[in-house]
Nucleic acid binder design. Structure first.
Lengths: 373, 373
DNA sequence: CTGTTAGCGCCTTCAG
DNA sequence: CTGAAGGCGCTAACAG
């Protein structure tokens, strides 16, 4: 006796699933499934009927079930240090945009610089069966690698490469960015340029540091050790670094910073000292965080394209997943940088004296910007 | 012939599932399931054995499968206007914390003020079968309500109540917050206080506006219409509003703003005009966004507790889901506000003249703050 | 207290 | 080109 395969289903319960759709459209569930997945071998007539029913019934496929059977969750994980760090929001936004465009959802987790939470982040990723994860933390923990790779989850480091890892990496073109900053300052007439670096234990901070020194040498200036200060990528670090600088017998006329938070700290310290920006001291940041445009004056800074960063990460992550033959060897991508001139950079006073009086003090008109190369 | 129930499974494929664990621990899968779910009727000895195997095998339960069968995804949705809006990051962070504490994951989506994207946000929520969604957008769209409620998904509006909706709401105690701001200014000696409101089409902006007017009346000051300006909660709105104010014959000595972005705009405009903060004009913001502490000078503002906001939203959302008898009638929660005194408020110049010369000009010591009530 | 069994909603061979 | 059937990994009744 061929009992119904399925339980009678408490009757009266108009559960909305693929079966309901199939029944209404008078086709099998397989056809509905194929239609939803845009499989081209479906008779257009049937497909149309199915779509119509889906519309009418207001049916939404259950992602959980799809994930369960297909083995692909269509979720991309994102591990950041701290959401409130001004560095992250725009990056997250871009990430979301790119992911959604490709049909993925993103799972954001933050470590809050706490190793315990990092463990938990990784666990959450694995439990939700993410298809890949992008790591954007500052102090990297290693358990990550092992755990995730043991689950065969693709991994990509965004702007934070650990020593040597099997994971792929996004490479930001720090050299060019810093070079542009130095050139900009040089063109304005600055010769006494200080650099407030990040913590030199960070690989990416080192890259910026070396880029600065090299760029300086390129224009024939020997770096003055007293003007090379190690900061910590925080506002406080920027302030204390600046205080050291201002105590010097020979005070620089411009300060280039390893990130924007440092630059904001520099601005506070400079203003606290009763000096003006950019008349007395020019300041340049790095990152172009969202709030850089809201400082007073708005901060001149070097932007790295968040869109490229996010897109790159997602491309790398997806390239392994999707069978599309494109992008075979996108192992390491390079992200470009760009100088954003706002109002914290101007002609140094000493220079002003020697120039024709009709030269505008600040801001500098666009045509004065260096674009040579 | 009792063929094995399950396919031989391509052999060699050590798939990590609950069955593998059961086999290794020499118990049934049901016992493993119960152990994982901390069901107290499991023999401690078996439980221990199971946990040990789980550890050894490095097993993680598949959330997708659990969700599928249990009908609860343990995902909470979050719809915001725009992640990069300084208003959101901290809120999101708190949200994540609270959610994770309760064993939920959060799905963040942003509308970017685009109705089309809003539709897509809602669809994503439904497809991922979220257990509830918190809405924190500025310009609310209505399709939301219908779609989500037709799927029986609990909904809560955070600081943005639409007209009349069946959904629950979080109520911020704007009255008290604004009152504290006005009191603070009054105690410092300000009498000429302007208010730069948000767009009065927004319910929450109206609340703040009326709270201001009432607070002023309470201290015996009749609101001067010329000092009541409608802004739009943006930096630009803050600037242009301030410019109007500064053109007046009678310029106010303090400006209270409906949100922090407006306040930052005010600061720019004031400084651009060559005036000093707080010596010439005091400024107070509202929200205490993360960057308020980074402005120059750091912004005095009225904070609404993000933790309370997030916790409240999650409590409301979960209260219907969890069978725990607690929190029966947490329909509408009220979120408290708090004045955060930084350095944009001080004694007005006019007052200074009349006071004893030993009164500090700025900042104001804490004991001078009004705490009466 | 433990094990057996029937699905959760969907995708995917495999026959027709 | 379509339909029937067997799981994906897990939970939730039921029996023992």
């Amino acid at each position: 006796m061929a009992q119904k395969k399925r339980k009678p289903r408490t009757k009266k319960s108009p559960r909305m699933d693929i079966r309901t759709v199939a029944a209404h459209a008078k086709v099998s569930i397989a056809t509905v499934s194929r239609t939803i997945n845009h499989i081209s071998t479906v008779d257009p007539v049937l497909a149309k009927r199915v779509w119509k029913v889906i519309e009418e019934l207001n049916y939404f496929p259950n992602t959980q079930a799809r994930a369960l059977v297909s083995g692909r969750s269509h979720i991309l994980g994102l591990i950041v240090s701290e959401i409130t760090n001004p560095f992250f929001p725009e990056l997250i936004q871009r990430f979301e945009e790119c992911a959604v465009d490709r049909g993925y959802e993103i799972l954001i987790t933050s470590t809050n610089y706490d190793p315990k939470r990092m463990i938990s982040c990784v666990r959450r990723m694995i439990e939700r069966k993410v298809d890949g994860v992008a790591v954007m933390t500052f102090g990297i923990e290693e358990p990550l690698l092992d755990q995730l790779s043991s689950q065969h989850i693709p991994l990509v480091y965004v702007d934070s490469r650990p020593r040597q890892s099997p994971a792929r990496t996004l490479n930001v073109d720090y050299r060019h960015g810093i070079w542009q900053g130095v050139q900009h300052l040089a063109v304005l007439g600055h010769r006494k340029i200080a650099f407030l670096s990040g913590p030199l234990t960070l690989h990416t901070a080192q890259l910026r540091y070396h880029a600065f020194v090299d760029s300086l040498r390129e224009i024939g200036i020997a770096p003055n050790p007293a003007w090379l200060i190690e900061g910590d990528h925080t506002l406080e670090g920027g302030m204390s670094g600046t205080e050291k600088l201002l105590k010097l017998a020979d005070v620089p006329t411009a300060i280039l910073c390893s990130n924007d938070m440092t630059a904001i700290g520099v601005m506070h310290a400079v203003l606290d000292a009763g000096l003006r920006i950019p008349e007395d001291i020019s300041v340049i940041g790095f990152d172009d965080v969202h709030i850089a445009q809201f400082t007073y004056p708005p901060l001149t800074t070097i932007r790295m394209s968040c869109r490229d960063l996010a897109q790159g990460a997602i491309t790398i992550l997806c390239s392994g997943l999707e069978s599309s033959s494109i992008s075979p060897n996108v192992h390491d991508l390079v992200i470009s940088t760009e100088l954003i001139v706002r109002r914290t950079t101007g002609v140094p006073r000493d220079t002003l004296r020697d120039l024709k009086p009709l030269l505008p003090a600040s801001p500098i008109p666009m045509h004065m910007l260096s674009t040579k190369k």
